[in-house]
Amino acid sequence: MSPSLDEILRNGVKEKLARDEVVASMMVRLVGGVEIARIARTAGFDTFYIDLEHCSFSLETTSQVCMAALEMGIPAFVRVPANRPEYISRVLDGGAVGVICPHVRSAEQAREVVRYARFAPQGDRSANGGLPHLQYRSFPTMEANLALNRQTMVILMMEAVDALEQVEEIAAVEGVDMMLVGTNDLTSEWGIPGQYDDPRVAAAYERTIAACRRNGKHVGIGGLASRPDLVEKFVRMGARFVSTGNDLAFLQSAAAAKAKAVHALSR
C-alpha cells in the first residue's frame, strides 16, 4: 500500500514544536556532502540548516544534501542569501522542508517571503510536479500543494533593530512559523557586537517571545553557541528552537582539543 501524503511529508520539527518541546539544530557551512545529513541525524539533532547566506555551496549541492536528509528522516532547512523567489522557491523545490530568511525588517517584507514560499491560496509559489518531498510520486496538485503548505516552515530572522521595533506586526503575519533571533547581527546594529550580557539582548528575546506567543508562532535562538547559560535562560523564557553552532566550529573545537591533549603529554 502506498504511503499517504501526511506520512510522506511528516515534519518532526513541526511536531516537536507543537508539543512545546525544544528543538536542537546545527548549521552547515563546511561539509557539502550528503554525509552531513547522516552525521547530524546520528549526533541526535532534530534538524539542521544549510547557511547559503554565509557559504559558497551551489543550489545543486544544497539540494543533494536536502534530499539525503529527506531519505534519512531529518528535516533540513536552508537559510537563503537573499529573500527573493529565485532562491526561496528553488531551495524548497530542491528538497528543503523550510526556509530561513535573513534581515526581514518589516511586516511587508514578511508577507513577501510567505508569498514566495507558499502555494496558493497562501502565496503564489509556482506549482511544480515531481518534488523530492513527495518521493517523486504523483498526487493531485491541489492536494499536494495544500499538504506542502502545511508542512513547509517559514522562518524569519529577527536580527535588525527595525525588525525588533516592529516585532508585534511581523509576528502577526499569517504563514510565518517562527522568528529566529540573530543575536550577533542584532548586537552589531546596536554597536555592541558580541556583548550578549547587555540588557537589550534579554529584552529583545522577551519582546519577541511575547509577540510570538500571542500569535501562535515559535521563537528560535541564534548566535549564542558560546553562551549556554543564556540559551538556557531564553529557553526557560519560551524559545523552543536552538541553533547550537556550525560544522566548521564543531570540527575546529574537537581538533584543537585533541591537539592540545597530545601536546600536553610532553610536559
Rank of each mutant, 00 (worst) to 15 (best):
M1K: 15
P3Y: 05
S4C: 01
L5F: 10
D6F: 07
L9F: 12
V13Q: 02
K14A: 06
K16M: 08
D20S: 15
V22Q: 01
V23D: 04
V23I: 04
A24I: 01
A24F: 09
A24L: 13
S25R: 00
S25P: 00
M26R: 01
R29V: 12
R29G: 10
R29T: 11
G33V: 08
G33Q: 05
I39L: 15
R41E: 12
R41S: 14
R41G: 08
A43N: 11
G44P: 09
G44N: 06
G44R: 02
D46T: 07
T47N: 05
F48V: 02
Y49P: 00
L52K: 03
L59M: 15
E60I: 09
V65H: 00
C66S: 10
C66L: 03
L70K: 02
E71D: 10
E71W: 09
G73Q: 12
P75F: 02
F77M: 11
R79H: 10
V80I: 15
A82P: 03
N83C: 05
S89Y: 01
R90S: 13
R90W: 11
V91A: 01
G94F: 00
G95D: 03
G98L: 00
V99H: 01
C101T: 12
P102C: 14
V104T: 14
R105S: 08
E108K: 07
Q109K: 10
A110T: 02
A110G: 06
R115E: 11
Y116I: 00
Y116L: 01
P121L: 01
P121D: 05
G129Y: 14
P132N: 05
H133W: 04
L134G: 04
S138L: 05
S138H: 09
T141Y: 09
T141I: 13
T141P: 03
M142F: 13
M142Q: 15
E143T: 12
E143C: 07
N145Y: 05
N145M: 14
N149W: 05
Q151C: 11
T152P: 01
T152C: 06
T152G: 05
V154P: 06
V154L: 12
I155R: 13
M158R: 15
A160M: 14
V161Q: 14
D162G: 04
E168F: 04
A171N: 02
A172C: 12
V173F: 02
D177K: 09
N184D: 11
N184A: 13
D185M: 10
G191F: 12
P193R: 12
P193Q: 13
G194C: 06
G194L: 03
G194V: 04
Y196H: 07
D198W: 01
V201K: 03
V201H: 10
V201E: 14
A202Y: 01
A202V: 09
Y205S: 09
R207W: 03
I209Y: 01
I209K: 05
A210G: 08
A210E: 15
A211F: 11
R213L: 08
N215H: 15
N215T: 13
H218I: 00
G220W: 07
G223A: 07
L224D: 00
L224V: 03
A225K: 02
R227V: 10
D229L: 07
L230F: 11
V231E: 12
V231G: 08
E232C: 08
E232N: 13
K233A: 15
G238F: 12
A239H: 05
F250D: 02
L251C: 14
A254I: 01
A257P: 02
A259E: 06
A261D: 11
V262L: 13
V262Y: 12
A264E: 15
R267M: 05
